[in-house]
């Protein structure tokens, strides 16, 4: 064994169950990348992905307004339980609004009975894979909300898909956390957060936003993140 076989990536399965003949998504599609990671996570789990089906995420009880209309992959588990994987490309509304950016779905899903809920981003593949596996092995229904940047609709260079996803996490507008049986846990906590302005400045969809709007979004993001930290800290004591 040489030094480089110790890189974490080398421990993942290298066979490709994910559409080996290619697919029709655009170049640099965040949705396709997230889906590939989901397949990777369930590769050795006996998950019957042929039985998985697509639907639209229902608004209301189960998912927040921001996820309404986003495609959701429904994977049957043992018993009547399901693993719901929402691929959120923030495309439900023509113009981007704060409601679309702030995710309420995981908390809602937890409140409506999902035992394991989490947010995930394809920029953090190990975190994503771990969460999908936890969701799979949870004793009840599980919900994973994945952010899928879309170069065309969001307006950035297609080579930056993973970067933009990472920035969303770093700017804390899309924090990575999980709610396991009601217990909050922040899984990726940046040391030096980015500003929301930095994240927004790289995407054409924010071009019409005023400085004040960005500042308001920053304030809202900080407030929600503080709340999240408080819920996570409460669990620790």
């Amino acid at each position: 064994m040489d030094t480089y076989t110790l890189f974490a990536g080398q421990f993942l399965p290298f066979n490709e169950r994910y559409l080996p003949g290619g697919h029709n998504a655009c170049a640099g599609s965040g949705t396709a990348l997230a889906l590939r990671h989901v397949y990777k996570a369930l590769e050795d789990k006996n998950a019957d992905l042929a039985q998985a089906r697509w639907d639209e995420t229902p608004a209301g009880m189960f998912a927040g307004r921001e996820a309404a209309g986003a495609p959701v992959l429904i994977i049957p588990k043992a018993g009547e339980n399901r693993l719901y994987i929402c691929l959120d490309a923030e495309a439900a509304e023509k113009k981007i609004s704060p409601e679309q950016l702030i995710k309420k779905s995981p908390a809602k899903a937890a409140a409506s009975g999902c035992l394991y809920c989490a947010t995930a981003s394809p920029s953090h593949p190990f975190d994503l894979i771990e969460k999908v596996r936890r969701g799979w092995s949870a004793a009840g229904a599980a919900y994973i909300h994945i952010l899928c940047p879309c170069p065309t609709a969001w307006g950035f260079e297609m080579e930056n898909t993973v970067r933009i996803a990472r920035m969303a996490v770093e700017s804390r507008i899309f924090p990575l956390y999980e709610i396991a049986e009601g217990h909050y846990n922040i899984t990726v906590e940046g040391v030096r957060p980015r500003t929301v302005a930095d994240y927004a400045g790289r995407q054409a969809r924010f071009a019409s936003w005023k400085k004040a709007q960005i500042a308001a979004l920053q304030e809202q993001t900080d407030k929600l993140y503080a709340q999240l930290q408080a819920s996570a800290a409460r669990e620790m004591n």
């Binding site: 559409l19 697919h23 949705t31 396709a32 639209e56 209309g69 986003a70 691929l87 495309a91 879309c150």
Partner: peptide
């Protein structure tokens, strides 16, 4: 359906 779910329909 939204553009994205159409895309996914094609995708898989």
């Amino acid at each position: 359906m939204t553009a994205v779910s159409k895309l996914l329909d094609q995708l898989i």
